[in-house]
Amino acid sequence: MDVALLMVVGGVAAGVFGSLLGLGGGLLIVPLLTIGFNLPLREAVAVSLVCVIVTSSAAAGVYLERRQANLRLGMTLELFTAMGAIAGGLVAFLLDERVLAGLFAAVLVYVALTMARGQRAAPDVEAPTDALAEDGSLPDPGVADRHVRAAPDHPMGAVERLPAGLAGSVLAGIVSALLGVGGGIVKVPVMHLVMGVPLRIATATSNLMIGITASASAIVYLLRGGIDVYAAAPTAVGVFLGATIGARLAGRVHVRLLRLLFVAVLLFTAFEMAQRAVTGA
């Protein structure tokens, strides 16, 4: 009872933070389950993928309805993210958990530094409001938003450098499957900077793509017995509730302070994960 409640509460916290900061839940859920509840990393990644699908599907529906997500572009790229995700899902079972922990720590440091840099470069910029769906859904690529915020939006037209975008999509799928994250940290910069997709469309389209990307690798985890329903259920319910609450709180919370706090949490978590990578404990 207590553990279930704690997992729901942890999921709510991850959902609220993620929603307010425009982050994918995976960056928070995997450390929560591994460090907080001592779950094996691979199992935590599988649970995180389920949570990422939940929040992405809810948000993608809103983005599609508002015509912010580009269905054709998203589906073209997600063919390749799905390929990467399946490859990543299979590779994840071959890699030592210490390697996965090291990769996760590196991604956490990257995201923390990106957030900190965005904080300094654009102190007046709050979390992107368009990334917070009104129905409480959780967008994924907010950090990537900040990473590419300096780049100017391109005029509407055809996408550029599609082959490079397809290659980036494969990479995003692999990262998503290995680490249980949405992969927006790869997809949004690729779409915006490489393919010339306007930032808002890139963010929304990335969110649309997360569902099938995470789903492709989640299927591999599921059929290999990698998903534990008892751990997945309270976490998914918590994240879903948290994302809903976060969307309602948007605009009423001092996001700059929250972001600073979050950078500290990410760096602490990265240290913990790096320690696991080194010691295996």
Binding site: S57, G61, L64, R72, T76
Partner: peptide, 27 residues
């Protein structure tokens, strides 16, 4: 690749709304 347009005016609104409903109901 001009067959993928970024212009939202070229999207099929009905299809996107239907898919949005599929996602919402499924979730």
């Amino acid at each position: 690749m001009s067959w993928i347009s970024l212009d939202p005016g070229e999207s099929r609104g009905g299809l996107e709304s239907a898919l949005a409903r599929v996602l919402a109901i499924g979730t």
